[in-house]
């Protein structure tokens, strides 16, 4: 058994789990944070994407023990109370989802992407960057639209703050 402790959405948590426990199972079953989804379970679909130490990773492809000591952010950690994160708001505004199953991973991937491209994004880059996130409903159109809109609005906010 492994003693793991990490910060999840700003809260320190610890538990004793089997060494083989995947991070996604730790989050869903131990922490009851079921917003992070298991889609394919073969590292392809990206429904399980969370941020570990500020970087988007597939939580189905990492052991909870590997993440011990890290800062983890899940979809539940993005909103500020009842105020949606700008990327969540953009997905709502642009209807960047249908069934919603891939949405947590899409949004976590989008937040990571926008952070890595502070100079802004274009459609081609967004589509390339979504390589690791599969959506079977939307055809991606509105997801791409939402990410571009969120990127633009977040840059605008940053510019106004500066």
């Amino acid at each position: 058994m492994a003693d793991v402790s990490m910060t999840v959405n700003g809260r320190k948590v610890s538990a004793t789990v089997e060494d083989r426990t995947l991070l996604v199972h730790f989050l869903r079953e131990e922490q009851r944070l079921t917003g992070t989804h298991v889609g394919c379970d073969t590292s392809q679909c990206g429904a399980c994407v969370v941020h570990v130490d500020g970087k988007a990773v597939k939580s189905c492809t990492m052991l909870a023990a590997q993440a011990s000591g890290s800062e983890v952010v899940t979809i539940e950690g993005l909103a500020n109370g009842s105020e949606l994160h700008p990327v969540q708001a953009a997905f709502k505004e642009h209807h960047g989802l249908q069934c919603g199953f891939c949405t947590p991973g899409m949004i976590m991937a989008a937040v990571d992407m926008i952070r890595r491209y502070p100079q802004g994004l274009d459609e081609k880059t967004v589509r390339e960057e979504l390589e690791g996130n599969i959506c079977r409903c939307t055809g991606y159109q509105n997801i791409v639209k939402a990410i571009l809109a969120a990127s633009a609005s977040m840059r605008g906010d940053a510019a106004r703050a500066a």
């Binding site: 988007a56 390589e131 690791g132």
Partner: peptide, 9 residues
Amino acid sequence: IGDPHVRHM
């Protein structure tokens, strides 16, 4: 290689 999330690891 792979996708952005895989490249982070």
